[in-house]
Simulated scan of single mutants.
Amino acid sequence: MYFCRKHVLICTASHCTQKGAQQVAGRLRIELKRRGLDAEVMANTCDSIDLCDIGPNIVVYPDGLIYRNVQVKDIPDIIESLRAGGRPVERLLLFAESEDEVRRRQLFAEAAAREPVPADEFLALARAHGFDEAWCAEQARRGFIARKPQGEGQAVWVTSKARRRYGLPGGGAEGA
Rank of each mutant, 00 (worst) to 15 (best):
A39W: 02
E31L: 12
V59T: 13
V156H: 05
W157M: 06
Q154V: 11
T159L: 13
D63V: 02
E31F: 10
C46R: 09
E31R: 13
C11V: 12
Y61H: 09
A96Q: 14
G172M: 07
Q71K: 15
K19E: 00
C11I: 10
D53C: 02
R105F: 00
V102D: 00
E90T: 14
T17L: 11
A128G: 13
S98L: 07
D77I: 00
C46S: 15
S48G: 07
M1K: 08
R147K: 14
A124L: 06
L94C: 04
F122Y: 15
R142E: 14
T12F: 09
Y166W: 12
Q23D: 11
I75G: 03
C16D: 12
A13Y: 08
F95M: 06
M1N: 10
S98K: 13
E152R: 14
A134I: 11
R163N: 07
L28D: 00
D47A: 12
A146T: 07
V156F: 02
C4K: 14
G85M: 04
R141L: 12
D120N: 13
Q139C: 11
L93P: 00
R164W: 04
S81D: 05
R103L: 15
F131W: 14
K148I: 11
V89W: 01
C11D: 10
E80Y: 05
E80K: 15
E99R: 10
H129L: 01
E133L: 08
Q23S: 11
M1R: 10
A137M: 09
A140M: 10
G153V: 13
M1A: 15
L168I: 03
A155K: 10
D50L: 07
L51Y: 04
G86I: 13
L107C: 05
A25G: 07
E152W: 08
A137Q: 14
F144R: 04
G170L: 09
S98W: 08
L9I: 06
A137F: 12
R103G: 04
G153H: 11
L37N: 04
V60P: 02
E101H: 07
F108A: 06
E133T: 01
S48C: 15
V89F: 00
A176F: 11
A113G: 07
K161I: 11
R114N: 10
R141W: 00
Y2E: 10
P116F: 03
A173G: 02
F3R: 11
N57E: 05
F108K: 05
R27H: 09
G26K: 08
Q139P: 03
S160H: 12
F95Q: 06
E101A: 05
D47K: 04
Y61V: 01
H129P: 02
G55W: 00
R103S: 08
E138L: 14
P118W: 05
L65F: 06
I30E: 14
E115F: 00
A146P: 01
Y67L: 06
G167P: 05
P88Y: 03
D77P: 00
T12N: 12
C52M: 08
L28W: 03
A111S: 11
A134P: 01
E152G: 10
A111Y: 03
G167Q: 04
I75T: 05
A25I: 04
A146L: 13
E110I: 12
D100Y: 13
E115G: 00
L92I: 02
E110K: 15
R142V: 03
E101I: 01
A137V: 11
